[in-house]
């Protein structure tokens, strides 16, 4: 079942003169975990708010389950669960009462409360006041609220933000099991690549309101260029020799050279070439840049054409 659950077409929204979200085209397939990745302030929360109809786009539209959000808001929201930024909780009520407040609004069965609390492992703490909850427990209760209506898609905005390492691990484990256990599609935003790498099957990278990449994790890996790092006695001569032969050469620190090259065969022929030219090769290493480096590189530069 590879149908699209969530899709945005040319989604654009600006605040004042600033374009927060610029022509975003998302496509999220059923049963996937989509990681919406970008640095803080990239436009993730604004996009998510538009996905939930909390704010209106200036241009473009949001399609969920094949229907337009602007014309089918209520029927769509009935199939969506969301946790936007910090969870919306009433401190003076217990965890259970917090669930009950939303349950009464939705009119769903009381059983749903028990089930949702069980999933997030808050059954034992259900009758304690939320005021006494730890940050991690609050976040889990927020997740339980999102799960209350048995949604088909879960939209989570920075679900581990502000949690301690134990809380982060718990939250990630919970999110990870959802697609397998309940068949829920998950759309989550994060500014942490490692988080998306651990949780997501698909990635969208947003930077300064623009989409830089969208695809599976494997496709993101394939985008990276392998490099051969060389240590040679006369680097400038070596660079000249290599460039003449058509290789792309970059100067590295410690007077090392980096060459865009793939696999052992390239490495061997580059080595042979340099030796033939009478150069001494004392270091040779094939390097695969980490996703972190790729992500950092993508989001370190300003995006062209940021005008509305």
């Amino acid at each position: 079942m590879n149908h699209t659950v969530l899709e945005t077409v040319g989604l654009t929204r600006s605040f004042g003169g600033l374009v927060a979200v610029n022509d975003i085209n998302l496509k999220v397939e059923a049963g996937s975990v989509f990681g919406f990745l970008g640095p803080n302030g990239a436009g993730k929360t604004t996009t998510i708010r538009m996905l939930l109809g909390l704010i209106k786009p200036d241009r473009g539209r949001v399609m969920l389950f094949g229907e337009d959000l602007s014309s089918h808001r209520l029927s769509i929201l009935g199939r969506v669960g969301a946790l936007v930024e910090t969870p919306s909780l009433y401190n003076h009520l217990t965890g259970f009462e917090n669930m009950e407040v939303t349950r009464r609004l939705l009119g769903c069965s009381k059983e749903n409360i028990g089930n949702a609390l069980e999933i997030v492992k808050l059954t034992d703490a259900a009758h304690r006041l939320v005021r006494e909850y730890s940050l991690g427990m609050r976040q889990r209760l927020g997740l339980a609220l999102a799960l209350l209506n048995r949604p088909e898609i879960l939209i989570l905005d920075e679900p581990t933000n502000g949690l301690d390492p134990a809380g982060i691990r718990e939250m990630r484990a919970l999110i990870k099991q959802l697609p397998d256990q309940s068949g829920i599609t998950v759309f989550l935003s994060s500014h942490l690549l490692s988080e998306v790498e651990q949780l997501a099957s698909h990635v969208g990278i947003i930077h300064q309101g623009k989409m830089l990449f969208q695809g599976s994790l494997a496709e993101l890996h394939a985008q990276q260029h392998e490099r051969l790092v060389l240590g040679v006695d006369r680097p400038s001569v070596a660079a000249e020799v290599l460039t003449k032969q058509g290789w792309r050469v970059h100067q590295e620190e410690n007077s090392r050279l980096a060459v865009d090259a793939h696999g052992q065969k390239d490495a061997a022929s580059i080595n042979a070439l340099l030796v033939r030219e009478g150069l001494e090769v004392f270091y040779l290493s094939q390097q695969q840049p980490t996703l972190e480096e790729t992500f950092f590189k993508m989001t370190a530069e300003p995006v062209a054409g940021g005008k509305p």
């Binding site: 939930l52 929201l77 936007v84 910090t86 919306s88 909780l89 003076h92």
Partner: peptide, 18 residues
Amino acid sequence: GLEHSGQSWKHLFAQPVP
């Protein structure tokens, strides 16, 4: 104030109720 301090408007207005 209950809603403002609990940041609940975003939750309430994202529910499938008018």
